[in-house]
């Protein structure tokens, strides 16, 4: 009721103050969010863990099985479960007052802190067992995540520059328009050259598989082939060459877009399945520990 009353006082539903703050523009990236709030929290967590590890006399030796080891393990397990919930949070916007940027920020820094917490939890005892499997999986998840942070921080600019204010739909429409012109322009060409154009027009522009998509290199590109082979100084040939050049530029933009998007997303195809494997391994790790206790 108190918030309702406060809302009354500003004339609206109470969002005015909140909106004004927002409009004052919270214009910072997820890494810098709230003056690196989560970085400091993560550093604090790591510092405390290390201090505990050094100061507490663990008997017979530092190990996941001492009370301190259990504490670190519990913190780590809870963190991993919470971090994996980002996938749900991202797809569930309402209800609740929260921001995905804050969640991402916390996800990154707390995730990184797991390197310290997890490692201390092992007590540096590594072996060929399910416990180490969980540890290695965790590190792999974290390293793919680091790649993710790196591409998120560096690639968006080139994505924007490549787009040149065009939407995906407009890029495809531009290609269709070029193709329509190519089709009629190629009518006067000879059989062999016309076939090259037909092949270029007929080729699926997405052909080439994931590798081509990631590298942006399409060795089988029929447009490039046609461009190389069609020569001559006839009016038709010049026009077709010009159009093929336009087409290959348009293809380059579309493929560039695909490449950058693929690089921004590819790591998720490892990060997420590994997370699921990690949670499975962790479950096995926890059960086995309790079973053999």
């Amino acid at each position: 009721m108190a918030s309702k009353a406060a809302g009354k006082a500003t004339g609206g539903t109470g969002r005015f103050t909140q909106d004004e703050q927002r409009r004052d523009s919270d214009h910072v990236s997820f890494l810098k969010h709230k003056g690196f709030r989560w970085l400091w929290i993560a550093l604090g967590l790591c510092g405390a863990s290390i201090a505990g590890y050094l100061l507490i006399d663990q008997q017979p030796r530092p190990n996941g099985g001492t009370w301190y080891g259990y504490t670190l393990g519990t913190i780590g397990f809870a963190l991993i479960l919470w971090l994996s919930l980002l996938g749900v949070r991202k797809r569930r916007i309402n209800p609740g007052v929260w921001s995905l940027k804050a969640w991402t920020s916390a996800h990154v820094y707390l995730g990184l802190s797991l390197i310290v917490i997890g490692t201390l939890h092992t007590g540096f005892q590594i072996g060929w067992n399910v416990h180490t499997l969980a540890y290695v999986l965790m590190l792999l998840v974290i390293f793919t995540g680091i790649y993710g942070v790196w591409v998120y921080a560096t690639l968006p600019q080139s994505l924007s520059a490549n787009r040149k204010e065009m939407t995906r739909k407009q890029m495809l429409e531009a290609l269709t328009a070029i193709d329509r012109q190519l089709e009629s322009a190629a009518q006067p060409l000879g059989r062999a050259e016309a076939d090259l154009v037909i092949e270029a027009l007929g080729q699926d522009i997405f052909a080439g598989g994931p590798l081509a998509r990631l590298t942006g290199s399409y060795p089988g590109c029929a447009t490039a082939r046609a461009l190389k082979s069609i020569g001559g100084s006839s009016e038709a040939a010049t026009r077709v060459t010009a159009l093929l050049e336009k087409r290959s530029e348009q293809l380059a933009q579309i493929r560039g877009q695909l490449r950058i998007r693929a690089m921004l997303e590819i790591w998720l195809f490892i990060h997420i399945p590994l997370t699921i494997a990690l949670i499975a391994a962790l479950t096995a790790h926890v059960i086995s520990v309790f079973f053999y206790w």
Binding site: R23, H27, S29, F30, I93, P95, W103, T104
Partner: peptide
């Protein structure tokens, strides 16, 4: 502007990197 939804505009809240902002000209 997501009126009636707690926390304000969903577009801004749902941006994972902080790219989406909503501003007013006199402040921005």
């Amino acid at each position: 502007m997501c009126s009636g939804i707690d926390g304000g505009p969903a577009c801004v809240r749902a941006c994972p990197t902080g790219a989406a902002i909503r501003v007013s000209p006199d402040k921005f």
